[in-house]
Amino acid sequence: MGAYVPALAGGVLIGLSATMLLLLNGRIAGVSGLVAGLGRPSDPRWAADLAFMVGLILGPPAFAVLAGHWPEMRLDASLPLLAVAGLLVGFGTRLGSGCTSGHGVCGLARLSPRSIAAVLTFLASSMLTVVLAKGIVP
């Protein structure tokens, strides 16, 4: 039971963040899209998108200060496997126009048919991957 309350509270904060970015700046809080936008410094929104990334990176240290410990992070995959996974996540989120935040948090909230299709697809493919990769990743 202890894991559910922080999960829900963390989710509420993520939803608040998406709401802030939408109502104040008119932007969708899609992390993959914002990261990719950093490759286009001529975009007028570049500085604000970079500021979002800086804030995102400062989030875990801010949590550590308030909670007295860092958030748990257990990364079991080997470095070569992480490199392959990173390539797939980077390429796939650009090809598919979004990730867990853009399609999940923001797209589902808008009931966007594209986002609903994307979320169902990446949930299915990730679940299947976890089951099939049991021999490779503990």
Binding site: L81, A85, G92, S125, L128, T129, A133
Partner: peptide, 8 residues
């Protein structure tokens, strides 16, 4: 593709 990378 994203789901495969996420799952791995």
């Amino acid at each position: 593709l994203f789901g495969i990378g996420w799952g791995l």
